[in-house]
Design a binder for these strands. Structure first.
Lengths: 216, 216
DNA sequence: CTTCTTTCTTGATTTAAATCAATTTTATTA
DNA sequence: TAATAAAATTGATTTAAATCAAGAAAGAAG
């Protein structure tokens, strides 16, 4: 069990990390800390009554939803410092996603009510949040465009390019199991595997387990 | 040219309409009013330097992006009272979408800088905005799920059901040209036409030009 | 109303990716 | 480290939807 500092945990969230410390400190009293979830357990699920946001203090998790047939669609992944469910801080919509720990995980969390009270007193916090949401909407729209105009191989490359930019290197480390990454890209694991092989044959990339080198 | 009241225009925006009038009045001085765009003209486009949000005072428009081949992907539609580009009020990302008037259109708009200044003084406004963003993110995630787990016909039905709920009737009026609707659903106009025909044959729906009746 | 353009529909064919099935590889646990 | 389970790969086949092509219907403009 890692050492835990409430302020350090909250400060990891993209949502909060650019705030001046004075603001961040105000978040500590309204958040729950050091919740532990062993690998494989569900951190959040529909109807669990846990409306609000969580911050990954340490660990990895995946966010997915189930359709009627029980098939998973990966909506994203979480790693240390990521936050999830921010929208539930602002709308009374209840959760429809699952969040499952993919390693042993510690989180801190915040309820809607407490947060709403706080934000009325701290407009800078609101601004920071709005910014974050804007980013996500742009990403969502980008994914829509990619699905409409790119085939599987192009989407994989676009994803790798994004990751490369994000990680600041042309050697990228995949943050997801390949089958989950396939789901995120809207393809099957089989297609993913085949297309990756083609990309290697075309000398566009090199693959070493979970590390991919992009040749430009 | 319709009569124009700045407050009335801003009050149409989902973003603002639940605000107390005292707050809404504060928006008037920071917004530009009564910009006119004839049918077919571009209200916004990439690199136009017009960062910020717009509110549809009167008219209809479509939001789309172009991929490298010049192919449109419809990201959504706007009608009287809708707002667009809210994310550009909060992030310095510049616009990557086109907004084209599909009828004669009047809009009012607001720049990022003016808005940011205002919002620091009005936290309730921030809360309302965050709520709206949350909704949109939920819709975006829902679309992702649908694309992964539904075929073309199911997506059409799901869309019609949504529209039916939104319009409060099982007789829905399509707000888009069919080819644009197809693009929104991630299919071709040909497939859309065929699937619609199948749905009629299966007695799931009845089609009358742009009006579709859903049989439950 | 007539012409011209755009959108919509229908048919024939192709194709990208899904599915089904069987290994191989990698990871987990005893 | 052996046994077991899960993930990844590869091959064969099917299939949903795209593309290509041509005509019909609807809208816009003269």
């Amino acid at each position: 069990m890692p050492k835990h500092s409430p302020l350090a945990c909250l400060s990891k969230a993209a949502l909060f990390k650019d705030l001046p410390e004075s603001l961040r400190k105000k978040l500590v009293p309204i958040s729950a800390h050091q919740e532990y979830f062993p690998k494989g357990s569900l951190i959040r699920q529909p109807m669990d009554g846990k409306d609000g946001m969580l911050v990954m203090d340490k660990g990895n998790a995946k966010v997915y939803s189930l359709n009627e047939d029980g098939k998973e669609t990966i909506l994203g992944t979480l790693t240390t410092g990521d936050s999830e469910g921010q929208e539930h801080l602002f709308s009374s919509n209840s959760r429809e996603n699952f969040v499952q720990a993919t390693t042993d995980t510690w989180v801190c969390s915040m309820t809607r009510r407490d947060f709403q009270n706080l934000i009325r007193q701290t407009p800078d916090l609101a601004l920071s949040l709005l910014n974050d949401f804007g980013q996500k909407l742009v990403t969502a729209e980008q994914n829509t465009v990619r699905r409409n105009s790119m085939d599987a191989k192009q989407r994989i490359l676009a994803y790798l390019d994004d990751l490369s930019k994000k990680q600041g290197s042309n050697q990228v480390k995949l943050e997801l199991k390949k089958k989950d990454l396939a789901s995120y890209l809207g393809i099957t694991p089989e297609t993913f595997s085949r297309k990756l092989k083609e990309l290697v044959k075309e000398n566009k990339i090199e693959v070493n387990k979970k590390v991919i080198t992009i040749n430009e």
